[in-house]
Design a protein around this nucleic acid. Structure first.
Lengths: 121, 121
DNA sequence: TATGGAAATGAAAATCATTTTCATTTATGT
DNA sequence: ACATAAATGAAAATGATTTTCATTTCCATA
């Protein structure tokens, strides 16, 4: 088992607390940090295990890592132009919590994304 | 541009209206149908374009295709054992619709999944 | 009924994210 | 200094998906 390379976490933070493994890697390269892609993946996974970040999926299937504790929000994504609006989801939080309780689940997280065509498209 | 091979749609229906491209392919093979993986992918994409099916992502990033019009439901997934409970999400439907309207989006769909540890794990 | 072009097909190669392997380097305790 | 464990990263393996391209099937029309 390996522990997370601290530079990975710091880069993820600098990236706005939201990025894919490849993006973190590219970012570190651009900034002149010497690190291997493998280490980036391993560190991110380790951060996930430690519940310091969690994982979502882009529409194209790429995994994106998000700092836990970041203001939790959801996305409204345009299928046409890809524009993304951050929206707030109090209703979802309540729903998730209620459903989890009802079925005896604990330690729950959730994802919720809305997609459609924006006004311009 | 290519049109959907009707056997693909019929197989997706038979699969319970919910399967990945690879699964549809394997299923057709098992049933003795002669078809190429490429055609399965193309047909599913074409069905997506025609809004006859839509796409979600498994936790591992694999795309799964769902017949539109299937009773729309959400999932509560255990991170430990993978057990999945189908749950209903009236609250989400309303939320999605409200958010879409507020931002001028039309033709919207959504995904929402809850994940945690089930009582057994 | 031929026939020419468009659409459909599928095998094989290409792509891309992610994981695994494995040899090397770095840390740490004794 | 030594031994052992942990961390690292290059390269290969994996697996889903897409692209390429040559071939086959359809279909409308001469």
């Amino acid at each position: 088992m390996s522990r997370s390379n601290p530079r990975v976490l710091s880069t993820l933070e600098r990236a706005g607390g939201f990025a894919s493994a490849q993006e973190v890697y590219r970012l570190m390269q651009r900034e002149g940090e010497s690190i291997g892609l493998t280490t980036v993946y391993r560190s991110l996974q380790s951060l996930v295990n430690d519940k310091i970040v969690d994982v979502l999926r882009r529409e194209d299937g790429e995994a994106i890592y998000r700092l836990c504790g970041e203001a939790h929000h959801h996305h409204l994504v345009c299928k046409g132009c890809g524009d993304t609006v951050e929206i707030e989801g109090g209703a979802i939080e309540k729903w998730a919590k209620a459903m989890a309780e009802e079925h005896g689940f604990r330690d729950v997280g959730h994802t919720a994304e809305i997609f459609g065509l924006c006004a311009k498209c």
